[in-house]
Amino acid sequence: METQHSVLHPGGTDAETIAILSWIMFGGATAIFFGVAGLTLLAYVGGETMRRRIASGKFIFWGGVIFPLVTVTALLVYGLMLTGARVIASSGTALRIQVSGEQWWWRVRYPASGEAAEAVTANEMRIPVGREVEIELSSPDVIHSFWVPSLAGKVDMIPGMVNRIRLRAARPGVYRGQCAEYCGGPHAMMAFYVVALEPAQYEDWLDRQRQPAASPPLQKAGEGVFFSSGCNACHTIRGTRATGMIGPDLTHVGGRLSLAAATLPNTADAFSHWIRDNQFIKPNNRMPPFGILSNGELAALGAYLESLQ
């Protein structure tokens, strides 16, 4: 899976403007550096006349006071116009997604609309290419920061507040995001993916996400382990009696790109590994390790979760 995670390789309009701003600043800084270096050189080799000219009050006033004042002010105004305006503005037409940063994963909701039920997923969001997406950012515990470098800038998720970020993917692709505000323990393992799809594919995906899990389950044995071990205490699988709200919704977990907030690949083996050894893989995460399960039970449970496509 090829993923993008770089400010310098923008995949959306917002990231492009940030990239342009970065290049302008980088270019300007380079020009000023060489200008200052040139003046220093001139002072060495230019003789007494040149040195007197460089040291004159007039030159220092224009070059040392007015020039930095004008360039820095211009950059600030340009930067604010590019980034600040995008965060504040809100339009009714954009696609709305709610993302809650929680220690140490991302709860993602696509609100119900009309007949269509709410879709809940985790650590992954899919968006249509070319359409403006407005993401509502919140947190129930500590401050997190939402950052997909290839799509947009970063915005903090603050308990008790809803912040907004708007972004638009220009090209299909998988863009990696990362929590950008230290939020305790396994903060470094709190990542996610944004998958930009062609609009038709996106609609298909969202329709499937809005559906409950397949009934009867494809993996009966694994479902039995899921419930007798009490997984339903923390996890929801829509369409079953699993209605736990503490951890991620697992209704279609098998269809996601990763496990444990972009920490493990999504395979049946990775499920088993995670369920038994999660405190080793991601120390201090909020899920208990299930060392009580035998290898056979783990395999059945992994197969069941993987079957939830």
Partner: peptide, 14 residues
């Protein structure tokens, strides 16, 4: 019911 906001699952689940 537990208290999901406090990270407390319902005891009866297990």
């Amino acid at each position: 019911a537990g208290m999901p906001g406090l990270g407390l699952p319902p005891c009866l689940s297990c």
